[in-house]
Design a protein around this nucleic acid. Sequence first.
RNA 1: GGCUCCUUGGUCAAGCGGUUAAGACACCGCCCUUUCACGGCGGCUACAGGGGUUCGAAUCCCCUAGGAGUCACCA
Length: 482
Amino acid sequence: MTKVRTRFAPSPTGFLHLGGLRAALYGYLFAKKMNGDFILRIEDTDQERFVEGATEVIYDTLRDCGMNWDEGPDVGGDYGPYIQSQRKDTYLPYAQQLVESGHAYYCFCTKEELDERRAAAEARGEVFKYDKHCMHLTKEEVQAKLDAGVPYVIRQNAPTEGETSYHDEVFGDMTFPNDVLDDMILIKQDGMPTYNFANVIDDHLMGITHVMRGMEYLSSTPKYNLLYNAFGWDIPTYIHMPPVMRDATHKLSKRDGDAYYSDFVNKGYLPEAIINYLALVGWNPGNDREFFTLEELVEAFDVGRINKSPGIFDVEKLTWFNWEYIRKMDFEKYLAMVTPWFDKVLAGKGIDYRRLAQLMQERTEVFNRVPDMVKFLGELPEYDIDLYTHKKMKTNPEVAKAALEMVKPVIEGIDNWTEETIHDVLMAAIAQAGLKNGAVLWPLRIAISGQASTPGGAIEIAWLLGKEETLRRLDAGLAKLA
RNA sequence: GGCUCCUUGGUCAAGCGGUUAAGACACCGCCCUUUCACGGCGGCUACAGGGGUUCGAAUCCCCUAGGAGUCACCA
């Protein structure tokens, strides 16, 4: 049995978006599951859309996620080069071979002419299809134009009747009538192959056994098969994948501005969480399991369980995955990762990051939410005295005032500023006063934090703030309640 | 418009002729609790519609509707 070889073939037109990442992921998972090779090929035949640096972004993203390729532009391999623009010269001879065998022909119609005719057809409500005009040129006519240096393209000579069928591992048996097949361009006027052509040539030359790609290629696959047949090559196994959607009617695209892998990483999403979640949009292991490392995904992956219907990308669920990953993260790693986020609002404030991190780790869903959650430690926010009213704690501004007055001298008397001491002293004082814990601790926490929700209770916060700052904020609260 | 694909709760989804139609996220209650959380318990919502086939359809067939893709010298 031949070794499985899959490929991820992105165009370097910008950042890698999540739909593309998932395509790469499935290709990687399948190859590894089958003990095969995963190949990275850069499809840059469209020079107008080429974006500087985009190739590096693809490398970085894939590596970041742990998907290493066995062959590719930077790691080499026996089937290189792996960048299509560097393979430019390999395509033309194949196209010419097709011209020889009658499966393709030279076309001298200009883009402008074609655009006009296309517009005219559309105006008539018809679908434009190239009429094989240039196919009827005689050999001599063609040669004369070629000799005269007339710009040309090479088109596929597609059949106009009958139908073409193929099998897809996800979608099953597909049949398309041939009369909808247009004579697609194989070689562009600039000498570059089109994606449609290069992809067939390269997949064959690179020994790709399983072609995995988005389902938008479902309807052009017959044209590719015609090419394989014309060359007498084996048709690869097709695995078309459903798209990742933004909502029911829109694909997740670059236009959303929020679909790039890097957008999520910058917000504080973990690569592991992104990969884990992405794997589950469009595929499932057949059981209830949701958490997988990349290695575990390889183990569990099964092409037969790829869904046919599009899946909507749910940020809420991704966030949940991220949070779970953060909670399970090694504490020292968390501390290192959260520090820059603390610094955004607490730099130079003298807060004990280690203790704060302990309090924050299980509350961190996404890192970019951290600053807002801890900002109050650096500076007491403006707050309304309504916060002192809490039904369950049985507090209101009057009760709060009394509680703060009671607690102030107690805190002033604490010399050994540790959480344990603060806790013990406070609890003793509350018990002695015959009050409920909540009736005192709620107002205290409000006074020193200025907000209803905080990472940790009054005691932890008081400790983090330090005795001096705690008392200062207590006085401010008292002044507010006066 | 032609061709192709898709259609189970708000979302991801299990299911592949017989189930009380799983599970997860989200949401809503209750409990716990010095806040918010966490945790525990419980709840809410689904087979697009209509015809068949069958003793029996979410599961098979047909039609309709809705959505998506494609019809480039973009990939």
